[in-house]
Amino acid sequence: MALEASVRRMPEPAAFPASAPPESHRIVDLCVSAMSLAEVSARMLLPVGVVRVLVGDLVTAGVVWVDDPHSVEHATDVRLLERLLDGIRAL
């Protein structure tokens, strides 16, 4: 799960696992709309490694899903780089 992977609550999330710690509830609250793993970690003041584990459990439980961004392929994709350049210029 990359730092820039996006975490999002499922549209119809499964029931919360009884064993989930309070931090997991906070993750789900943060991820009502998509948020990067790094940002979840920063906002919760928890190391990325800890958040990775909690998010992994939530994925298994069917509460959130994660989109890992294929950054390695994206970084050399001509069309995406063109869009990125246009986007930066338009800021």
């Binding site: 992977a5 996006s6 999002r8 499922m10 549209p11 998509a34 899903w65 961004p69 994206h74 869009r83």
Partner: peptide
């Protein structure tokens, strides 16, 4: 059905 998340660049 979920809208695809935005493409992440770094």
């Amino acid at each position: 059905r979920v809208t695809a998340p935005p493409v992440a660049m770094k």
